[in-house]
Amino acid sequence: MRPQIVYVHGSGPKPRAALLRAQWDRALFGHGADGTSRLAYWAPLLHSEPLPDREPDPLEGLPGAVAETEAETEAEAEAEAEAEAELPAPPLEDPARFVERTAAAAARVRAAAEGGARGGLGARGGPLDGWLSDMAYLAEALALAEEPRPGPGEEPLPKALPLPRPARTALFRLLVRHTFEDVHAYFFGGFGPAVRQVVAETLDAAEEARGADGGPLVVIGHSLGSVAAYEVLAAGGREVDLFVTLGSPLGIAEVQDHLGVPPAVPPGTALWLNASDARDVVALDHTLRPDYAPPGRITDLLVANASANHHGIGEYLSNPLVREPVRRVLDRAAGPA
């Protein structure tokens, strides 16, 4: 029996495919898994260049991305202020203004895809607006609540939360913006079929590698990748031993409204594990079990994701509540046939 695992990454620009797969392998197994793991690498469909090898993925919540994120946010605000003849935006932009800018950018993408003339500044992003607003305001609340504060007297700041509020706000907003824009492009910008094709082809290769004896197959989707993986599996015709969704927006009503099929456990999927951090702004609804029948095949878990934005895939994969079920399924290949 030859076990296979298929990764489906989430939103935003990513490192090159081989490096990204190796990062997921190390987080999940502690070492490489060549021959066992495959990556459905769809990032080039929406992002023209991969991240440089030494540049951290900003959507992993790594502090190294803060300066670039803050500079990008400031440049966008200054450009819009100049275009609109307004004063420069304050260092911490009002959440409502951030939502408006992000929705307007997504609306322009949708208008271009539909060949229309809608989507100027001030336009709304459409059916996903409620999710965008909820993500943005939760991000603001988390950034403020988790800001390191001095204790009584001269006690030092706690070391567990090293980023001050402006930096944490920048990281959360980058996560919100990229996730919303890519999900919007997936559902309304015409990119969904191409993303699903990449996932389907990767699954085809994994199924061929399993061989005639049908070794165990695990599919792991993160963030938007969980949506694409779900839609491909929901189309049917694939036997999957374990489907794992991490930091997934599949519980969000606005996302469910635009799935290709009604919410349900994909046919052929034996078990479904859905894990998220309660502070993950992408996975606002953390329970899939009530919405995806039959509920007996879904396990929802709240886990601790210690990345700075609580959404990083490395933290999810290295969590024992995620990695141990995956390992148990894959280890079946080493046991009796």
Score class of each variant (00 low, 15 high):
Leu203Ser: 02
Ala205Val: 03
Glu208Tyr: 00
Ala209Glu: 10
Gly214Gln: 15
Leu217Pro: 04
Gly221His: 07
Gly221Ile: 08
Gly225Asp: 07
Val227Cys: 10
Ala228Phe: 10
Ala228Ser: 14
Ala228Asn: 11
Ala229Val: 10
Ala229Tyr: 07
Tyr230Cys: 14
Glu231Ala: 11
Ala234Phe: 09
Ala235Glu: 15
Gly236Gln: 07
Gly237Phe: 08
Asp241Val: 01
Leu242Ser: 04
Leu242Val: 00
Phe243Tyr: 14
Thr245Phe: 02
Leu246Trp: 04
Gly247Tyr: 10
Pro249Met: 10
Ala253Asp: 14
Ala253Thr: 14
Val255Glu: 09
His258Val: 14
Leu259Ala: 14
Val261Arg: 15
Val261His: 14
Pro262Gln: 14
Pro262Phe: 12
Ala264Asp: 04
Val265Lys: 01
Pro266Val: 04
Pro267Thr: 07
Gly268Phe: 01
Gly268Ala: 04
Thr269Phe: 00
Thr269Met: 02
Ala270Cys: 05
Trp272Ser: 00
Asn274Ile: 12
Ala275Pro: 09
Ser276Lys: 11
Ser276Ile: 03
Ser276Met: 08
Ser276Glu: 07
Arg279Ser: 10
Val281Asp: 03
Val281Ser: 04
Ala283Ile: 12
Leu284Met: 11
Leu284Lys: 08
Asp285Pro: 07
His286Met: 11
Thr287Arg: 15
Leu288Cys: 05
Leu288Phe: 03
Leu288Tyr: 06
Asp291Glu: 14
Asp291Ala: 15
Pro295Lys: 01
Gly296Asn: 02
Gly296Ile: 01
Ile298Phe: 02
Ile298Thr: 15
Thr299Gln: 14
Thr299Lys: 10
Thr299Arg: 15
Asp300Met: 05
Leu301Cys: 00
Val303Ile: 15
Val303Gln: 07
Val303Met: 11
Ser307Gly: 03
Asn309Phe: 09
Gly314Ser: 09
Glu315Phe: 12
Glu315Arg: 13
Tyr316Arg: 09
Leu317Ile: 06
Leu317Tyr: 05
Ser318Glu: 10
Pro320Ser: 06
Arg323Gln: 09
Glu324Gln: 13
Glu324Ile: 12
Pro325Tyr: 00
Leu330Asn: 05
Leu330Glu: 02
